[in-house]
Design a protein around this nucleic acid. Structure first.
Length: 110
DNA sequence: GTTATGACCAGAG
DNA sequence: CCTCTGGCCATAA
């Protein structure tokens, strides 16, 4: 029946809430959902996010690096998607990462 | 059961 | 900037 695990759906729900032009991090999602599995499981969930309509390009690691760009079918696809939404990317890193960061535990309230 | 791996994180040097 | 270490823990073999 459901291939997806419950925490997968939780992660997807949060990622879907990330507005265009903003990014969030694996750690932030893990913190917000209190996933004991930690940030690694968020990354694992993203791997399975294909076909779920998840804007995975808005999820980067703690320093704003596009660590998952390799999974978008090309080395520039993820960057292209972000820049198309107004997020500047330089050397695989989000420019003005701190101001672009959308932390669910802050934006949605803890 | 054990081992290896990973779209991670934080700290130390 | 770089590498290394320790921690986290689900998944695969």
């Amino acid at each position: 029946m459901l291939e997806e695990k419950d925490y997968f759906k939780e992660v997807y729900r949060v990622v879907r809430e990330v507005p265009p032009g903003r990014v969030t991090t694996y750690g932030a999602i893990a913190r917000y959902l209190s996933l004991r599995a930690g940030a690694r499981m968020v990354g694992w969930a993203m791997t399975a996010s294909h076909g779920h309509g998840i804007p995975a390009h808005r999820v980067v690691n703690s320093v704003g690096v596009l660590s998952g760009k390799h999974f978008f079918g090309g080395p520039t696809v993820m960057q292209q998607l972000l820049e198309d939404e107004g997020v500047r990317v330089k050397d695989d890193r989000v420019v003005d990462f701190k101001t672009r960061l959308w932390d669910p535990s802050v934006e949605l309230g803890v």
